[in-house]
């Protein structure tokens, strides 16, 4: 089984097609959409995690590329360097899913990776550059 995180860019003409439906129906892949910004007739972007056999994964990616999508493997991990972090909390202000929060009592930073959707808002918000992506 393969489990990969993909960063898809949709060309404007493909933004209304049910592409993810085909990944499930025709390639037996299990998609988990982490974030998506799709508007009619505009370039769209989607980050999703897909699970399936290696063969189905390869065929599914080939299908996406045939449809004119740009497919990039997205970050596989996000790392907080405690030695660089000063607990300023600025990342918590941009973390919409609530993965980065401050302890109500100590006001130190807590990172719940299960809630992270890899939007990367914290990566550019952190003034210490303490949050990095691993590919």
């Amino acid at each position: 089984m393969a489990r990969k995180r993909l960063d898809l860019t949709f060309p404007p003409r493909q933004s209304l097609k049910p592409i993810i439906y085909h990944l499930v129906k025709d390639y037996d892949l299990v998609p988990n959409i982490l974030r998506a910004q799709i508007h009619p007739a505009q370039e769209g972007r989607m980050v999703l995690e897909v699970t399936g056999t290696r063969e189905d994964y390869a065929a599914g990616v080939a299908f996406l590329e045939e449809q004119g999508l740009t497919v990039n493997e997205a970050a596989s991990d996000i790392v907080l360097d405690d030695a660089q972090c000063v607990d300023c909390g600025l990342c918590s202000a941009v973390c919409k899913p609530g993965a980065l929060t401050l302890d109500p009592v100590t006001q130190t930073l807590r990172f719940d990776k299960d809630k992270c959707v890899y939007c990367e808002a914290c990566v550019i918000a952190c003034p210490r550059r303490a949050i990095t992506l691993r590919f």
Binding site: D87, C88, G89, L90, S92, A93, V94, T106, Q107, T108
Partner: peptide, 11 residues
Amino acid sequence: VPTGPISSLPK
């Protein structure tokens, strides 16, 4: 509106 500090209280 969600808030976030910039000044570190632990420090």
